[in-house]
Amino acid sequence: MINATYTIALMGNPNTGKSTLFNVLTGLRQHTGNWPGKTVTHAEGEFVYRGIAYRIVDLPGTYSLYSNSADEEVARDFLLFERPNITIVVVDATALERNLNLVLQVLEMTDRVIVAINLIDEAKKKGIRINTKKLATKLGVPVVPMSARNKEGIDELLKTVDAFVHGQLHPTPIAVPYSVEIEQSIAKLLPLVKEIVGDDYPARWVALRLLDGDTSLLSALNQQPPRLTKEEAPYACCGSVKSV
């Protein structure tokens, strides 16, 4: 066992190649197959890149983080309570539109995100071209095109991870503009959220979830003991969690 310094969460829609990427990064042999839902439990592995040890967690594939199912709850709670240092959202280049939904939702929860556009080779075959630079600018987080099964783009991804943990990246995530009605309600709710839930959770996102009537979120927050103070926070070493 390596004593991992940083935790990386792998997220994404079902069947986008998360497990393939996980296997490539860790050298493990998590079962892969072309059907949604085959990763029923989450897998963990480790790897070292440029002298830094990482713990990587392959979360179940989800279409959203709205907790319609146990899988989504697992993924959501992991982001919320385990607070991975980096979240890699694996998206399917051949169905970018639907996959971006999840990216946008993740960006509401954390800005420490890398978007890995997987299956870029399949997309090319279908005549789909993605301007990843422009997408990165629009999303406000790094975007890496890759093909996990051909082991293309892995190095680029790892370099981005490395840059992230060294504080060389400054994400400015896009915020989804909601309808006037919703935005007004968010504005009204925000002070109360900050007062009751505290600063440890993404307040705008919590407010949205509450407006949506997400009771499972509240009960999850309620079961969680009040967060550790900043000094004790497990990943606060190396000054990289909030100081970027």
Binding site: L96, E97, R98, L100, N101, L104, I128, R129, I130, N131, T132, K134, L135, K138, L139, I174, V176, P177
Partner: peptide, 11 residues
Amino acid sequence: TSAALCRETVT
């Protein structure tokens, strides 16, 4: 938002 992003970045 996703659709708008795709319109701008995907051909």
